[in-house]
């Protein structure tokens, strides 16, 4: 088990990480999700031993490894831009970690080559051992990088935006394959991503980060369905936000009453976040929002309707069943919010 205990890191005046506490369970596939500058890559590098915290400690299975260098931590690290050694063949790249061992621990050349071939099989690149990295596609290069990291049998696999440099189709294929490999080999993995779709699809648990702090830790289901802050609900999945005020356990959008549970909320300004698919079209009854339709297009089995609500700067986006006739642009729709989250405005970061 990996434990991060009150990790802080500062670069000059910039607080990259602020008191991070996190446990990673054995066999877990954990995603660090956040926008750029959220500190997720710094945290990964601290786990790897490529960066060192100002405060706090890193524990691997109860053992304090905070001061150990990357070479001593037995972790596999995969870089966004692969970082393959371009003057070496694919097989030499994969065998590198074995070939730099001390003489008495080093396998023979033949054994290293055999191990490389084995790993090439594992990453489905059989027969490409004598190629050079420049002769491979992006997806193939990342597989080689993965095989190279796995060759030293790491206790932990760390991946820094591993699919970031690949095109959409390859990315999708490779990430499913990676999840499969993780399960098959019984690895413990942490990967960094800014792509919420990737995190939700792949990870057992998602750690949402922003401005050097953890906003929420949870399963993809929890993070999506029960965001703990407005930042999480906006960053994970699509969200519309309405400025509302709470009075006597009731949410009001200007003078209009919104039928959303607000019983435990104190009075005052708040933010109402709802997903595009959590709405229905109602009639002009109380509790509905008047949406002026500005655009309609098809998205799979839904109409994606873009519109304006008076008093909101951002375009409101909702999904409506495409079996219904498409709403007309320029018409007003009465939208009823079925499910939403309310956040007190003092909790909402600017």
């Amino acid at each position: 088990m990996i434990r991060l205990d009150s990790i802080s890191k500062r670069y000059g005046a910039y607080q990259a990480l602020d008191n991070i506490n996190l446990d990673v369970r054995d066999g877990e596939f954990l995603a660090l999700l956040g926008p750029s500058g959220s500190g997720k890559t710094t945290l990964l590098r601290i786990v790897a031993g490529l960066a060192f915290p100002d405060h706090g400690s890193v524990l691997f299975n109860g053992e304090d490894v905070t001061d150990l260098k990357v070479a001593e931590r037995k972790v596999g690290f995969v870089f966004q831009h692969y970082a393959l050694f371009k003057h070496m063949t694919v097989a030499d790249n994969i065998g590198f970690g074995l070939s730099v061992r001390k003489r008495r621990e080093r396998p023979s050349k033949a054994a290293i080559r055999a191990r490389a071939e084995e790993l090439l099989d594992l990453v489905q690149l059989r027969g490409l051992g004598d190629r050079y990295p420049a002769q491979l596609s992006g997806g193939q290069r990342q597989r080689v990088a993965l095989a190279r990291a796995l060759a030293v049998e790491p206790q932990l696999l760390l991946l820094d935006e591993p699919f970031g440099a690949l095109d959409a189709q390859v990315r999708k294929e490779l990430r499913r394959w990676l999840r499969h490999l993780h399960d098959q080999m019984g690895l413990t993995s942490i990967f960094v991503t800014h792509d919420q779709e990737e995190a939700l699809e792949l990870a057992d648990r998602v750690v949402v980060m922003d401005h050097g702090v953890i906003e929420q830790i949870g399963t993809p289901e929890e993070v999506y369905m029960a965001p703990r802050s407005s930042f999480v609900s906006n960053f994970v999945g699509e969200t519309n936000s309405l400025p509302v005020s709470v009075r006597d356990g009731q949410a009001h959008f200007f003078d209009r009453h919104i039928a959303i549970e607000a019983e435990r909320m104190p009075d005052g300004p708040a933010r109402l976040d709802f997903r595009p698919h959590d709405v229905t079209v109602g009639d002009e009854q109380p509790g509905c929002l008047p949406l002026l339709v500005t655009g309609v297009y098809r998205r799979g089995g839904d109409w994606r309707v873009e519109g304006e609500v008076t008093g909101v700067d951002r375009t409101i986006e909702v999904n409506l069943d495409a079996r219904m006739p498409a709403p007309e642009v320029g018409k007003r729709l009465a939208i009823k919010v079925q499910r939403a989250k309310l956040f007190q405005l003092s909790e909402v970061k600017p």
Partner: peptide, 16 residues
């Protein structure tokens, strides 16, 4: 620094 960091993470010494 990626190449160097990759080598270090694979257990190579600074000189290697």
């Amino acid at each position: 620094r990626d190449d160097e960091e990759a080598a270090l993470s694979l257990g190579a010494s600074g000189f290697q």
